[in-house]
Amino acid sequence: MAAISSLPFAALRRAADWRPSTATPAVSVSGGVMLNARARRGSRSVVRCVATAGDIPPTVADTKMNFLKSYKRPIPSIYSTVLQELLVQQHLMRYKSTYQYDPVFALGFVTVYDQLMEGYPSTEDRDAIFKSYVTALNEDPETYRADAQRMEEWARSQNGNLLVEFSSRDGEIESILKDISERAQGKGNFSYSRFFAVGLFRLLELSNATEPTVLDKLCAALNINKKSVDRDLDVYRNLLSKLVQAKELLKEYIEREKKKREERLETPKPNEAVAKFDGSAYPLKH
């Protein structure tokens, strides 16, 4: 892309008016951009930039449509509304130029999803929705689940001190955390997100690290801004609080509607009541 941005403006203007020719060779450059060049008499080569499909990320509408195509059953509005909002947020994270998947992010998302979908009427549907959601983002739902499980199992064997001393130890998860620390320091792609913050919180929770300073030390070891983590964890806690209240309201509504249906079934219709009364009051004689 550096070669494209360094082109003279005049050449770019001419490129906008250029039309493809079957005789024009295509030259591939990094990033999947095709540069078609054609020499003109008495002028410089004219370059036309054509981005391949791989360079253009899907739109939010594309991702939402992929989800709806994959999971076609109706979802109760209390779940559907939050899922759609999360999907939009995660789409924007997923297609940032600095995005790189990591297991802490996966743990955070899985934690949020499981909290959101707790109490969903069908476990089978809950799993199917998860699969459709992650697949709509062009990622692997099995990888998310497997990585989240690995992180949880590791965290249960840790304590506050061991958690923050990952850089001085060897191991699979320790290597993952070291890689995140290096990338967050600017040695590679890293894009902080709320899901990452929730992933850190889950690690602390499972390792029974109750000391407030542990989160400070862990953020420092990972080169993560502690203020951002605190802010996003507050948002997460507020979301959970509102979600619990909404689920309680939904539960009350379902129970109330169920009771109404039962009462309607138990109450005889007017004609049936009359027939029953007439039959009992004036029995037929044979």
Rank of each mutant, 00 (worst) to 15 (best):
A2I: 10
A3P: 00
L12H: 07
R13N: 06
R19K: 15
A23K: 12
V27C: 10
G31D: 13
V47F: 14
V50W: 09
G54Y: 08
P57F: 09
A61R: 10
A61M: 05
K64P: 00
M65C: 07
R73H: 12
I75K: 08
V82E: 11
E85K: 13
L92N: 10
Y95G: 05
K96D: 15
T98R: 09
Q100A: 15
L107H: 07
G108Q: 01
T111L: 03
M117I: 03
E118F: 12
Y120N: 04
S122N: 05
D125R: 10
K131R: 14
K131S: 13
L137F: 06
D140N: 10
A148T: 02
Q149V: 09
E153D: 14
S157P: 01
G160F: 07
L162K: 14
L163G: 02
F166W: 08
F166N: 02
S175F: 04
I176D: 14
F190S: 08
F195N: 15
V198E: 02
L200M: 12
N208W: 06
T213S: 13
V214Y: 06
V214W: 05
L218M: 07
V235D: 03
V235P: 00
Y236I: 00
N238S: 11
S241W: 03
S241Q: 12
E252V: 02
Y253W: 11
E255Q: 15
K259L: 15
K260P: 02
L265I: 11
E266I: 06
P268M: 06
V274S: 06
A281S: 11
Y282A: 09
